[in-house]
């Protein structure tokens, strides 16, 4: 398959950046979007040009490293996939594809398609932990957890922190990310100790980082590669109200 590409190129944080047109030929329909970029980068390197910088690591949708807006969608067209899982067969031959980085004030662009997502790490540092003594592994059944809670907590913990929710949100809100992190702890007995402080601190840090206010339009859920449900946002709100009132 052949494609025309419009890709955002930006030298560094301070560069203004612009779209550059490229062409890539003879790509296998089964290649992932990142593999297609690898092929393009090979040709750029051979020509002595600077390859396109993009984040990637596991390339199997579990690490949360990759991520870009492809044709106006976080991680490109399709539901429940990260950019590394997007296959070129979903596009039509000789399509023009637009790829640009996550755009929000809270994620400054470092280079080309790579953004600085440490804002999410700082939110985690503000409250995304539990009190636990170091030492030997405790007996797994010493703290019983209801099956339903364990499942729901695990669903929230599936969040890979890629930032697609922020990128998709018209308000650049990080609520789905923060909600997933608050939920995964709030549902488990181990998370109850810092329950109140956690939600207040994480929301405070989220606001400090410059993310927007959630307006419940649920674009985040639609674009989340792990299909994290917005019911976790409702839980975050409940936890917040509970912490404020009690």
């Amino acid at each position: 398959m052949d494609f025309k590409l419009k890709i955002w190129r930006q030298k560094n944080r301070n560069d203004k950046g612009q779209f550059v047109d490229y062409e890539v030929k003879a790509v296998s329909p089964d290649a992932s979007f990142l593999e297609m970029l690898d092929i393009l980068n090979d040709t750029l390197v051979k020509k002595g040009e600077e390859p396109i910088a993009f984040d990637h690591d596991c390339r199997e949708g579990i690490c949360g490293s990759c991520g870009m807006v492809i044709d106006g969608r976080s991680h490109g067209p399709g539901r429940g996939i990260a950019t590394c899982e997007l296959r070129m067969r979903v596009f039509r031959d000789s399509d023009t594809i637009v790829a640009e980085p996550w755009r929000t004030k809270a994620f400054p662009i470092l280079k080309d398609l790579i953004v600085d997502r440490t804002a999410l790490d700082r939110i985690m540092a503000a409250g995304g932990y539990i009190s636990s003594k170091t030492g030997g592994v405790p007996e797994a059944n010493s703290i019983p957890v209801p099956k339903h809670d364990a499942e729901e907590s695990m669903d929230a913990a599936a969040c890979i922190g890629c930032g697609a929710c922020v990128a998709a949100c018209p308000n650049s809100s990080a609520m789905l990310f923060v909600a997933a992190k608050v939920s995964q702890f709030a549902l488990l007995p181990q998370g109850k100790i810092e329950r109140k402080e956690r939600v207040l601190r994480m929301v405070e840090q989220m606001d400090k980082e410059g993310f927007g206010n959630c307006s419940n339009n649920y674009a985040c859920e639609a674009e989340c590669p792990k299909k994290i449900s917005v019911t976790h946002i409702a839980r975050l709100n409940r936890e917040f109200i509970r912490a404020e009132l009690t």
Partner: peptide, 26 residues
């Protein structure tokens, strides 16, 4: 106003209509 300030550089292509209901869009 706060939400408008969160994305100083907008997307070249942004397909919000694929993800949201008309009534929920800003």
């Amino acid at each position: 106003i706060q939400n408008r300030m969160t994305r100083p550089v907008g997307y070249q292509m942004y397909r919000l209509k694929d993800n949201t209901k008309l009534s929920s869009r800003t």
